[in-house]
Amino acid sequence: MKNRLINFARKYPIVFILAVCIIFFSASSPVFLSSQNLTNILLQVSIIGIISIGMTLILINANIDLSVGSILAFSAALAMGLQTYGLFFSIIACLAVGTLIGALNGFLVAKAKINSFIVTLGAMMGVRGLVYIYTQERPIVGTERALIDFGSSSVGPIPVIALIFVLMLIAAELVLRYTTHGRNAIAVGGNYEAAENAGIKVERHVLFNFMFIGFTAALAGLLLVSRTNSATAFLGTNYELMVISAVVLGGTKLTGGYGSMLNTFGGVLVIGMIQNGMNLLNVHAYYSMLIMGLILILVVFIDTRFKAPVNI
């Protein structure tokens, strides 16, 4: 029993950390396990969570995308600023522009063979520049009440934004496990040349994943402004770090070839629970950053040092 528990913790460190978080916070705060608070946590992680879905695919491919925070900000600003041309137009434009920036990143990585860290670092700065130009550093306020009504609505007890996140996550897990695209993702990340030799259209595959993460960042931006009805130039700052932390916490490797959406969900939840728990316990924001950093390093350490051989 004890050995099985240890083995399990070695195989899925994120589940273990998640359990520790739940036990600790529920013991420290009577509010933590209340249904309202659990709903809050799910809602609060949805924005980061949706981008994490795209990031999991990118990391499985052994790439990285640092531009998601900037794409989120630009899409959010467009979603607000273009509402004068109609709500439908602004939503389509917001999502299309995010996907397009992703396509540009993907093209430079897949076709021009530039390292994804460099490409997306450039995009992170360049797109943030566009945000400043477009917003003139002033908040852009929405005019359409419908978007904010949508953002604050619920299906039964579940906020609609959280529902979108969970449904996307399930769909992505199914794609990863049961479709050619999912298996190719792991093959490409495991060994790029072998995947190419095996006839996988690697360039197209990588391009698609960058378009997809661009889309998820834009969708996250859209859902964010559906809660605030206002976009500023600073939105999404540091979100790329939060997203990458969540995915890596979940056990996806930066070296590629391994990862799962459910584990990413675990990573996202841990980050959300720590932030929420710190608020409940009245702990200063500085400490929550410190603790998140420590946990991240701890998990990766356990993972690389003591990872049980995968025998599925």
Partner: peptide
């Protein structure tokens, strides 16, 4: 008694903190 939080300049975090304060009644 006070619950003293800091949004660290992030509007989304501030909205989350308002919700967390409500959850604590």
């Amino acid at each position: 008694e006070g619950i003293i939080l800091d949004a660290a300049g992030d509007v989304m975090r501030q909205i989350n903190q308002v919700e967390d304060l409500m959850a604590q009644g």
